[in-house]
Design a protein around this nucleic acid. Structure first.
Lengths: 116, 116
DNA sequence: CATTGATACAACCATACGGTTGTATAACTT
DNA sequence: AAGTTATACAACCGTATGGTTGTATCAATG
């Protein structure tokens, strides 16, 4: 029996890699407000069932969707938390940028003050 | 001479693909508050100059960094707007999620017999 | 203008990726 | 228990990717 459950650290290579494909992004978008199984999802795309299944597996490994068995289907749902993890990294970069501006401003201010 | 300048529509495949590599993400992070040339950037990574140069070219094509010639160097700078474009897509997904919740609430509130 | 320094680019190699078809497993239906 | 439906997985194929080395361009300097 499982005693401790480790939360995997975010794998950004997998996350962004999973998002770097139009079909997979569309699956993420659809799975936000649908409760479709793998075959139903597959019906939307001009490729084989197996291909879509692989895309879903990639999204699942990236933590962007989850699958839940319901009867003989497996319903695919977008994992909001996964999306947030990816977004937060981009937020952090923008935050770093803001910090850079602040530091530049600070330098200018210090220079001005030192100049009096 | 160029008369009209088209802004390229965001290529999310390229954007997320570019972000799906640890070295490239690190270059983006560094280039936020450094003014390093290609060779200087390359010195931080355990790979050849040419390899880093290719990474930077990929980031540039994805719109995530820009290069500016300064003397004999080319200074690499992170393109904030590129980061924002990527982030906005993730924001949109989260927005869709919010809409889903709203719609669910609406259904419950209006006590409709909808089945989908 | 020849040399040095910084960047670019081409050719090549191994592995990963996106697609295919075919076969196997799991769960309902009769 | 047999048949049907939904999903999973393996093997294969062509192309893209991430790395290498080598050569070419371009700008500053003696």
């Amino acid at each position: 029996m499982v005693v401790s459950m480790q939360i995997a650290p975010p794998d950004f290579d997998r996350m962004f890699g999973a998002l770097a494909d139009h079909t997979r992004r569309d699956i993420v978008r659809r799975a936000i407000d649908s409760e479709e199984g793998v075959a139903e999802l597959a019906s939307h795309y001009p490729m084989s069932f197996a291909a879509v299944q692989k895309h879903i597996a990639i999204l699942e490994r990236a933590g962007l969707v989850t699958k839940q068995r319901i009867g003989r289907r497996k319903v695919v749902r977008t994992n909001l938390e996964g999306l947030r993890v990816a977004r937060r990294l981009l937020d952090q970069y923008e935050e770093l940028w803001r910090g850079r501006i602040d530091r530049m401003t600070e330098l200018v201010t210090e220079a001005k003050e030192a100049d009096r």
